[in-house]
Amino acid sequence: MKKCKRNIVKAAAVCGLLITQTLIARAQDGNAGIQQANTQVRSYFESGTNLMYAIGAIVGLIGAVKVYQKWNAGDQDTSKVAAAWFGSCIFLVVVATIIKSFFGI
């Protein structure tokens, strides 16, 4: 019996809290906040994609040096290393392009 009363009190407290939160949320203008957040996040996409292109260029240069060193050393797995570095550069460029096209920048 006491356990049932405690559960009823807890349920009433939770309902009261939810009603209060709903009233507070309706009192605030949520659309303006969401629009401001949207604008701020979209403003970072151009810089982010440029950063991804720069990282891809640096990774490409490092990969070219690594492949050149392996090629001159006569290693048998030079083509695997070249494919891995080239693939990582392509991946970065493709991801940056997809982000730009997906978000309509």
Rank of each mutant, 00 (worst) to 15 (best):
S88V: 09
V93A: 14
Q76C: 01
K70P: 11
I90H: 00
V94I: 13
V81D: 07
K70Y: 05
K70A: 03
D77T: 11
F86G: 10
F86T: 14
F91D: 06
K80Y: 04
K80A: 06
W85P: 00
Q76I: 03
S88N: 11
I98W: 05
S79G: 03
F91T: 14
D77Y: 01
V94H: 02
A73C: 05
W71G: 07
W71I: 00
S79E: 05
V93D: 06
S79W: 09
F86H: 13
D75F: 12
D77S: 12
V94W: 01
D75R: 14
I99H: 05
F91E: 10
K80T: 09
C89R: 05
W71M: 06
I90W: 00
D75K: 15
S79D: 04
V94G: 02
A82L: 15
K66C: 03
Q69Y: 04
L92V: 00
S88A: 08
F86K: 14
Q76A: 07
G87R: 02
W85H: 09
L92Y: 07
C89Q: 08
I98S: 06
V94K: 07
N72S: 15
V95C: 04
G87D: 00
W85M: 11
I98D: 03
T97P: 04
A82V: 02
G87K: 04
D77M: 04
G87H: 01
V94S: 05
A82D: 03
V81T: 15
T78V: 15
S79H: 08
A84Y: 06
F91V: 12
K66H: 01
G87W: 01
I90V: 15
S88E: 09
T97C: 11
G74A: 09
F91N: 11
T97L: 13
K66S: 00
F86M: 13
A73Q: 12
A73W: 01
G74E: 01
I98Y: 14
C89H: 04
A96L: 11
K70H: 09
C89T: 09
I90A: 13
Y68H: 11
W71Q: 12
G87P: 05
T78P: 11
N72D: 13
N72T: 15
S88T: 12
D77P: 01
L92W: 01
N72L: 15
T97A: 15
K66N: 03
I98A: 11
A73D: 12
D75Y: 12
V94F: 02
K80C: 00
N72R: 15
S88M: 08
